[in-house]
Design a binder for these strands. Sequence first.
DNA 1: GCAAAAATGGACCTGCAAGTCCAAACCTGC
DNA 2: GCAGGTTTGGACTTGCAGGTCCATTTTTGC
Lengths: 201, 201
Amino acid sequence: MTRALTRKGEATRARIVAGAAAEIRERGVDDVRLEDVMAHTGTSKGQLFHYFPDGKEELLLAVAQHEADQVLVDQEPMLSNLTSWPAWQAWRDRLVERYLAQGVKCPLNGLLGQTGRRAPGAQAIVTGLMWRWQAAITEGIRQMQSTGDIAPDVDAERASAALLAGIQGGVLLLLSTGKIDHLEAALDLTIERLRASARTA
Amino acid sequence: MTRALTRKGEATRARIVAGAAAEIRERGVDDVRLEDVMAHTGTSKGQLFHYFPDGKEELLLAVAQHEADQVLVDQEPMLSNLTSWPAWQAWRDRLVERYLAQGVKCPLNGLLGQTGRRAPGAQAIVTGLMWRWQAAITEGIRQMQSTGDIAPDVDAERASAALLAGIQGGVLLLLSTGKIDHLEAALDLTIERLRASARTA
DNA sequence: GCAAAAATGGACCTGCAAGTCCAAACCTGC
DNA sequence: GCAGGTTTGGACTTGCAGGTCCATTTTTGC
């Protein structure tokens, strides 16, 4: 089923996805018309349906996957190396910085309940992202436990679940209120709690 | 500017809002057509535009306000009486229960980034909800501080911000993954942290 | 360089859902 | 009971965005 794509074709396809992503960030998921994507990427309707035969649905899914991957890429190399408290702090700072810069323009937000319902695939993409995200945090906690920086009786899965929830909620509140405070508070207090676990142990 | 509404008119208007809310929960915000609302509420298009002259936009805003209010009402009387640890636990249980029952059908989810962008008013509604929600939690923490159940050096604002973030993220993750674990973990660990503050003090 | 396949452009079609309009029914106070 | 309002029903208009189609150009493999 892998369609034959020449180099040029692949480039065009990528350009469409990137352009559509930018347009979505700007206008919001369903205020984006195919016409907008065409204008933004300098493509024609024929091209859009050439690369995405199932139309908008398929394009949106491709954009979602693209953006989901980007979320984790943006956290590297910190996220995969949570091996010391300074490293955790660096990761925390990166998160705050990234979402502060992004501001209200969250491309994945609309894909959640919204597109998630209309496209079963979008749900899977977001779920996969969350899964990978939490797995990385869990791994970080386990590493810290192995060095004794986090108490061994801390449930790594549970703690990472809570931390991820705090992050997601923090971003959500950033989107709705425009303030970064919630994200910072959630990150700082949760991480502080992990640090404290070792001290009291 | 308060339009003249007879008792019958008021009832019809309320019926439309409630019906539209139900329909939105079922289908999702923008997969709902006015026709659906008409069918669900037994009303005609003339009525819709009679009570909501600005059309769908205005109706959606009314629904958003209705649902936002409901979110807080559903947490009462617990939310306003966080005066003991059993009370906190009862509130926590209510939250879990409520969102577990609600499942994927979050009416406000779509209103965030999405409708929030298209309708400036929706943003305000969500912001107001979050503001009131956090204020209630902050008040609860302050009460517990006054009885010595939470250490006085805990920053109530910051702690409630983190807790609210955890809740929002937990619900978000419930929506995307279908699992309640994150909400529970966020609630339990954050509350536990508050309890521990008194013991170490 | 030539045939086959891929890439591109853009005119056209189509369906749908929001919004308009007006006429009929109905209350409501006097 | 009648004159003002409000409420209701539903036919009609309209604009638009997604999708179709095909003709043309470009690339690729040999």
